[in-house]
Simulated scan of single mutants.
Amino acid sequence: MLPQDAKRNPDSYSYPNGMLNSGYIAGVLRKNDPVNGICYIQQTKSENHMLPIHYDPKKSPIPREIKEWDLVMAYVHTEGMLDGENRIARVKSIRFEAPNFMHLGERFRDDFMKKWSVAVHAAATESQTPPSVEALSQLPSANNDERRDSFDWRTMELNKNASNQIKIAGFIQAKSLERNRKHPVDGTPINDRLVVLIRQSKDSDASVPVRWYGRNLQPLAEKLARGMPILVNGEYRVDVKVISMPDPVSGLAEVSKHPFIQAKDMPVPVAPDSGHIKIVPSWAHELFRGHGSQSAPEKVDENRSALFASAFGENQQQADQPGA
């Protein structure tokens, strides 16, 4: 559990490897298992998409007053891991707390309620709306200076989604671009998918998988070189794919689940004086060898607007669909 002094000092928890790694996830608490140190945060009615949150039951327990179906907020670190042949993101909470009026502003409420109303998979268990979410939908706005200046909003610099935000700075370990993708059911064209592994430690298997979806991601993929230091703003999600026909009795289908980070904007090159990367370890220097000088990030920065326009247009069909 973070002491009060640490809560006021972002550096004490936001740089576990000398590189920015900070996150904030809010939603409905589900299926808490304090013995194994795992719970789920539900942000949509589909239980297939509940977000797994790991934690240390001794150092960062869930407060006893927060029960199943209550709203909860988790401050997290993210790392990657191998699950068979799949690269997944593993999120670990360093602190849980109940939401209060400094958090439950109009922005948070609208972002969360928008997620809760999304219908993701027909062949899945769908939760009813619990009293905590019903109460949230009726809250007045708490948009005031006190909320904006509170520790958790300031350090997260929340953008795009006030209920789910991940910020990671690190070095590119590898990348993979999938173009000319087709919808698995109707065969219609869907957006490109670019997966980039962001490395923060000596263990390359702990690299965090970050995905971009867009109409044409090839220009971005060509600019992102192995070893390049970048900053990513993203959202913690679960890629769910149906792997069997629905059960004729229950109507439910067996699925595979792979947690990942979905980027919500273009990556930002990390400048030496930015403070996002405080330590450049020896393995990072190795990544640079044979892939140009450190001047490459500046070129990416010059072209950010053009890259954004080419990759993310107004027609974002299925760009944000989990499992797409």
Rank of each mutant, 00 (worst) to 15 (best):
Y236S: 09
E222Y: 01
I198M: 01
A135F: 04
G170C: 11
V133D: 05
A169G: 13
I168L: 14
N216F: 08
P246F: 07
P229R: 03
W153D: 03
A221C: 04
S150H: 13
K160Y: 14
Y213G: 15
G170D: 09
R109I: 12
M113H: 03
P209C: 14
P184E: 12
A253R: 04
S137V: 12
Q218V: 03
V238D: 00
A221W: 01
Q138Y: 14
L136H: 10
D203Q: 04
N143L: 06
S141H: 00
D145E: 12
I190L: 11
D110F: 04
E134I: 13
S244N: 03
L224I: 11
W212S: 01
Q138R: 15
A142Q: 13
L252Q: 14
I198F: 01
V208P: 04
M228P: 08
V195G: 10
W153Q: 05
F112V: 00
V208W: 02
K167M: 13
V232L: 10
V232E: 09
D110K: 12
A169H: 11
H121V: 08
A225I: 09
D203L: 07
R237D: 05
K241C: 00
E222S: 14
S201D: 15
K182T: 07
T155K: 09
S137R: 08
M245G: 06
L220T: 02
F151D: 12
K241S: 05
T188C: 07
V242F: 10
Q218G: 02
M156Y: 05
N216D: 14
S127H: 02
L252D: 15
G214H: 01
R148F: 03
L177T: 04
F151E: 11
A135I: 02
